[in-house]
Computed example of a mutant assay.
Amino acid sequence: MQNRISSFPPIIDNDSEILILGSIPGVKSLEKQQYYAHPQNKFWTIIFELFHEKFTEDYTERINIVKKNHIAIWDVIDSCERKGSLDSEIKNEEANQIEELLEIYPNIKAIFCNGGKSYKNLQKILGKNYKIPVFLLPSTSPLHTISFERKLHDWRKILEFIDLA
Rank of each mutant, 00 (worst) to 15 (best):
S139G: 15
S147D: 15
G115T: 10
S139W: 14
Q123M: 10
S147H: 13
I111M: 06
L101P: 00
N96W: 06
N121G: 07
K109W: 05
I146C: 14
L102P: 03
I108M: 03
I111K: 01
K120G: 06
L137F: 13
L102A: 02
G127I: 10
K131I: 11
H144D: 15
Q97Y: 10
T145K: 14
F135L: 08
Y130F: 13
S141A: 11
K117E: 12
T140P: 12
I125N: 04
F135C: 12
Q97S: 11
S118M: 04
F135Y: 15
E103N: 04
I104T: 06
Y119P: 05
K117M: 11
L122V: 00
K120C: 08
L137H: 11
S147V: 09
L101F: 02
I104P: 00
T140S: 14
I111R: 00
Y119T: 07
V134P: 03
S118H: 05
L136Y: 08
E99N: 08
I111V: 10
K131Q: 13
I98H: 00
F112A: 01
P142L: 13
I146L: 10
I104A: 01
I111Y: 03
S139F: 08
L122S: 03
I125H: 07
T140R: 11
L126G: 03
I98T: 01
T145F: 11
A95R: 00
I132W: 04
I125V: 07
T140V: 07
K124V: 14
I104L: 06
I104S: 03
I125S: 06
N96Q: 07
P142K: 14
I108K: 04
Y119D: 00
S141N: 12
K120A: 05
K131E: 08
F112Q: 01
T140Q: 09
K124P: 06
I108P: 00
N121R: 13
L137I: 07
I125P: 02
S147L: 15
C113Q: 06
N107A: 03
L143K: 15
H144N: 15
E103Y: 05
Y130A: 02
G115F: 07
F135R: 08
P142N: 15
L126N: 02
L122K: 02
I132G: 00
K117Q: 06
K117C: 11
G116T: 13
I146E: 14
E94K: 15
K131N: 09
S118V: 02
G127H: 09
E100Q: 10
G127D: 10
N107V: 12
P138E: 08
G127P: 06
Q97N: 09
K117A: 12
K120P: 01
H144P: 03
K128W: 11
E94N: 13
N129F: 13
G115L: 05
F135E: 12
G116E: 10
Y130D: 02
I146K: 14
Y130C: 05
K120I: 07
F135D: 01
S118R: 02
T145R: 14
K128S: 12
Y119E: 03
S141G: 08
N114F: 02
Q123Y: 09
G116V: 09
C113R: 04
N121T: 12
P138C: 12
H144T: 05
L101C: 09
E100G: 02
P133M: 13
G127Y: 09
I132S: 02
S139L: 14
I132V: 04
I111H: 01
P106G: 05
S139V: 11
T145Q: 05
K109S: 04
V134S: 03
A95K: 04
G127N: 09
T145Y: 08
